[in-house]
Amino acid sequence: MAIEHDQIIPSRPTVTWRTGLAQFPWWLVIILTIIIIMVLRIIFDPIHRDIFITILQGLGLTLYVTVVSFVLSLVLGLVLGLGRVAKNPILRNLAITYIEFIRGVPMLVLIFTISFAVVPLVARTFGLPNNAVSLTTRAIIALVLIYGAYIAEIFRAGIESIGRGQMEAARSLGMSHVQAMRYVILPQAVRNVLPALGNDLIAMLKDSSLVSVLGVREMTQVARLSVSTSFRYEETYFILTLFYLSLTLVLSLLLQLLQRRMRAKG
């Protein structure tokens, strides 16, 4: 027996070492290395540094557009998602029409349509001039209307993931349909879809670059304007890429941390 033990024990660390190597997040190391190289160039090269500082001026607007649009599209998405699962056929069909309409058109096209056709149309019907709504506001309206439809589908999936028995139990206790939704179904549904909502927040951050086509001076637009006079395509677009990559990386790590903490709470 003793001999067998001696034979088995030395082989074990090798196995753990190997699986450890396979499990190690090498992708993160590679991405971080790229980021560090770029950061070093920004620190030691004045041309890179200037471009970095230029794009940095758009960071605030990128974050502002992303956060405001995301919060508002959560509200719209919840309303549409509830309409999507409503028993009332009129409500349900209205919600489905909207969702399918939005999901059937490319995001870039919708940004043009909403900003330059829908918003001016609505402004005119209220007797306002065409330029009454700022471009940044139009960008936010467009992103909210688009993401509302996508987030509605997330909420719908979340609501449908809760078994029918939960609604029956709530109703059999005398709760109304609305009360059962509010206190029993939605709290569970929202918890189930938090990872999916986190993904959409990251997607929103990336898609906020699309509103550069409206002339909103977020990071992408600032970079484009800078390039049009400096012609430093390589430096500018690599640094712009670095900005988005770092932001999404930080955001996804934060979201993972948040999820782990929520799971620990039970």
Binding site: G165, E168, A169, S172, L173, G174, Q188, R191
Partner: peptide
């Protein structure tokens, strides 16, 4: 329906407690 449900308690096979 709500008046009746208020008078009638129901226990399910799968308990259906609210897990949150």
């Amino acid at each position: 329906i709500n008046a009746v449900r208020a008078e009638v308690g129901m226990v399910f096979q799968r308990f259906e407690l609210f897990p949150h």
